[in-house]
Amino acid sequence: MRNILMLIVFLTIFSFFMYVAINPGDFNSQTGEHFVFGSPKFTDMDNYFIHNAQNQTGANNVVTSIVFDYRGFDTLGEASVLFTAVLGVGLALRLLRGDKK
């Protein structure tokens, strides 16, 4: 009974997801333009990065210049998350070893 109920909820979510994926809807409600795969609408920031990254940072790879220069705080947080994960894994498994003695 409980499984059947969960399955019904699941099928509802599935049909909603498929509806959204097949018909993405009005991306901009004022102009009524649909969002189409392959032609994103708002690209001002990315065009700025593509045209100015080589002069400002000197790197050919635009993605690297975004990761390490324009969005450096993002990368700092990411490195901190990795550091904290290693700390947590070491703490958990070390606690286990002390428990065994």
């Binding site: 690297t64 390490f68 990368t75």
Partner: peptide, 15 residues
Amino acid sequence: TAGTLPIMNLAVGIE
């Protein structure tokens, strides 16, 4: 080229 980006790449690679 690229200023501090190779240094940061090396640091993050080591990490």
